[in-house]
Design a protein around this nucleic acid. Structure first.
Lengths: 135, 135
DNA sequence: CACTAAAAAGACTTTTTCTATCTTTTTAGG
DNA sequence: CCTAAAAAGATAGAAAAAGTCTTTTTAGTG
């Protein structure tokens, strides 16, 4: 359970690749896709989402492509993951307590809150700079 | 992302209900299902899994039903969740590093390991006894 | 023994989500 | 105006989740 989807995996690969390039270098989607081994059409969708969130900047037309929207040390893995997968929600009761009907009596609720906080904490503590750093 | 499935949610509801009963009380599946508002046929599948893992004991025939397999303070939420959802795996690379092909160069891998450890730690620290305790 | 109650097991259906592709449109440069 | 590239939208196939139904096994009871 709790598994990242392909989309999320691809998203990370793609943006980490970008983070490893000079900040103002414009990269072709097709090049990124080839480099990180992701279907180009799928990666296109992912980068569109990134673009809307400001995580990357896009340029259309000849000479167009993508570059990172901010310095890699200012982009956390949490942002990247949530950009394409949506918020970290271990159980729906975390977002709408009314969902399980008996929220007032549910002792499990706070546990999911802790899980959520834990996961978010870990992902928030990692930046693209660290992830793109060579060994 | 990282969302518990209905199956997992139902599983927790069902076994927490059992944990709130006297340890040797045999409960009918149909009663449990009605009490926690879960489709009986679905809950049946879930309890079959519990039974195989020893989390509950089952009795067939007249007067049959289910009871908790162990004292509620000795069953953790982690066990319950993993019994029906499988292991906590934030990303497949955590289980088979070869999967992403370039495991040796992947800085993300240890992050997922930490997420996995964090989630497991939280769930492992909670027992059915605590979950079934009234307010 | 025959009957009934209850869980176990397996097959099956429906719905939803994921994964991926294709086509058309918009934007920009040469 | 032509070409390059991303944006947007529609669609399709595959897989997983959610749920149901039927048959079988097990056990108690009159």
């Amino acid at each position: 359970m709790m598994e990242l989807t392909r989309k999320g995996e691809y998203a990370i690969r793609g943006i980490v690749y970008l983070a490893g390039k000079p900040i103002d270098k414009v990269c072709l989607l097709s090049d990124i896709a080839a480099a990180v081994d992701v279907p180009p059409t799928f990666l296109a969708k992912i980068f569109q989402q990134f673009s809307k969130m400001g995580l990357v900047k896009s340029f259309r037309g000849t000479g167009g492509g993508f570059m990172l929207g901010r310095a890699p040390e200012n982009i956390t893995l949490l942002e990247v993951v949530e950009a394409v997968e949506g918020p970290i929600i271990p159980n729906r009761c975390v977002v709408t307590p009314s969902d399980c009907g008996r929220s007032d009596f549910c002792n499990v609720h706070p546990v999911w809150k802790r899980v959520q906080g834990g996961v978010r904490g870990v992902l928030e503590g990692v930046t693209l700079k660290e992830l793109s750093a060579g060994k």
